[in-house]
Design a protein around this nucleic acid. Structure first.
Lengths: 350, 350
DNA sequence: TGACGTGCGTGAATCGATTCATGACAGCTG
DNA sequence: CAGCTGTCATGAATCGATTCACGCACGTCA
């Protein structure tokens, strides 16, 4: 295209490397590297001269080369279950924030709850020699984690507790969250409630239910006071289905606790379509406190998870693990506490 | 460290490289490389032997080294304006899908509409020598794009039209979308309507308004039939504010068209709180058709953008550009068509 | 004056894979 | 048998940065 260096600056030919800088500045490549990485080893004069050449040529150092020597890259991977769920978007925000403070990038990927996609991504991460992985595993057997361990890739579990303490983890106390929600409904005068759950193999779903049962027991109510509806996924459409089933129950329930906000929004929609007023005739509580919970036609009471904090903390723990000696590191299991946010969907009628 | 291959597998010491494979298999490193990259150059026998050593040692090739020679990495960057907007999440899904078919990874990052964050990310991408960048620019001056061009990083604009045709772009015809929405409301009998827009410098906001005006004109209505309310951001909270202002208008509007679904949800919530029934007393149309639009208490009529297709197409165009000769490539401006999805929030009363 | 320390810079080795010119060897032909 | 072709494998050069042992110049002190 362009004849021969006709352009304004020298950027016509491929990429300017450290050697070009060294030549222009009349120093060795080692010195240029020192200017960049250990400026205190270089004399004031040389340093400024090299710096100016760097900016004149628009030199950008190659991460590939740097990481080839260093052994690990400056990228942290985040593998979540569902990018469509605002909860995980918040986790990603937190992780990104923490990573950027160390000038690291975050590669956010979506396993969409599929074990095979998870495996595929993990192998991509291994090839990239990522600094570490933040993961909410989709694979219930734990083989994915086993693979990470074998390949000596540091990882931190997000929204999961590490069963065998073989890694760090950051999670939220789902039993406590379930208890908060159920306790709130019971205190409002409801003597029985419905739990709209999801796939049985999700720890979250089980724990939140366990918390609700605990709250019933504390209130002296029988376990039979909890009716259960099982959705097959944790999204809005599944919530609508669950809502329909809910309305078929007799006597009609007055209080519903959903395993997540997407389900709750679906339920709310079904209930609203049936012209049943919320919260007067039916109280609804969700879980996660996503932005859309507050934005629903009837703002949704929900159990807030510190999602951003969780992502941030997870990333920080990963950085901590990968910066010091690997041997000196002790795995930690951090469990954060959820918080009830009361809104219109569950206010006591009077 | 290790005396002489004493462990179960060799994985105890650091990382197994191509040299280890070569030694074990009794061939040269060049041959191992050929087995991986050009298997047809290697005899059946050697190939299987090397393959088996590879899997026995659990060899994983280093992307850093590979890309050092190749010059570019196997990562595509996606820089969006707002990760919290499900629209961009869908774009990301599409891009990811296309990228994975070529065994590329996507690094999704969030500029949060901040020019400075955008700049920071772009420099990270440059250091990483990413294969290319998919970007919805936050910087209105175009300097970010200028920098990309100077550094010879291929990029594709997403949800924007390239003004000077200096790059590929994939966008949706926002004027047509605005026209669709307004036409729908006019056809339902509304003789005037309100446009809830956002920041003036966003092309989307302007174009959708222009489309609405065009529809008015086509229907023989005066331009004054369009009242405008300007939100300062494009999120739910801003929508609530706009809704409050909307309700203060006299006479009360009967039809509202919002520049995006987040705004529309906010408006819907404000309107609902004021006990005004939708769509009987007020019709509302949004834009983007995010999942939560259908999930609203009154399902939201919205202009659907082919977000997933857009992300997919953008990624494919980028791959096309980066795989062939850069010189042979001709930049294309693809404009997709939006589609009206009619739901409860705007059904004609009778 | 010679020994020594210090401050600054050099240049070669290195990371792990790719690529290509070269060579070894087998099989075929005239 | 010499000459030629084609198939495979080799090993060295290369990508761009980091790192470290070394050397040079200068100053200080005994």
């Amino acid at each position: 295209m362009e004849p021969a260096g006709g352009g304004r600056d020298g950027a016509v030919e491929s990429m300017v490397g450290i050697k070009d800088v060294a030549r222009q500045a009349g120093v060795s490549v080692g010195t240029v590297s020192n200017v960049i990485n250990r400026p205190d080893l270089v004399s004031e004069e040389t340093r400024t001269r090299v710096q100016s050449v760097i900016s004149k040529l628009g030199y950008i150092r190659s991460e590939s080369a740097r990481q080839l020597r260093a052994g690990a890259s400056r990228i942290v991977a985040l593998l979540v279950l569902d990018m469509g769920n605002p909860f995980f978007v918040d986790v990603a925000k937190g992780a990104e924030r923490a990573a950027r403070q160390s000038r690291l990038g975050v590669m956010v990927c979506n396993s969409a709850q599929s074990t095979s996609e998870e495996v595929e991504y993990l192998s991509l991460f291994a090839e990239q020699r990522v600094r570490g992985v933040l993961i909410t595993p989709a694979d219930p057997t734990g083989q994915s984690l086993e693979a990470l361990r074998r390949q000596r890739i540091p990882y931190v579990l997000v929204d999961r507790v590490s069963a065998d303490a073989a890694a760090c983890s950051v999670s939220v106390d789902d039993v406590a969250g379930g208890r908060l929600a159920a306790h709130h409904l019971i205190a409002a005068g409801h003597a029985s409630l419905v739990y709209v759950g999801g796939p049985r193999d999700l720890p979250q779903v089980r724990d939140r239910r366990a918390g609700a049962l605990a709250a019933l027991e504390e209130a002296g109510l029988p376990a039979g006071a909890l009716t259960e509806i099982t959705a097959d996924r944790l999204d809005v459409a599944a919530g609508r289905d669950a809502g329909a089933r809910l309305l078929g129950l007799a006597p009609r329930p007055t209080a519903v606790f959903c395993a997540n906000d997407l389900l709750a929004l679906g339920v709310l929609q079904a209930v609203f379509a049936a012209r049943i007023s919320v919260p007067e005739q039916m109280a609804i509580v969700g879980y996660d406190d996503i932005e859309f919970a507050a934005a629903a036609a009837v703002p949704l009471t929900s159990v807030r998870q510190p999602a951003v904090a969780m992502g941030k903390l997870a990333a920080e723990m990963l950085l901590e693990e990968t910066s010091g000696d690997a041997d000196a590191h002790e795995h930690r299991q951090v469990v954060l506490q959820p918080e009830l946010v009361v809104r219109g969907s569950s206010l006591t009628p009077r």
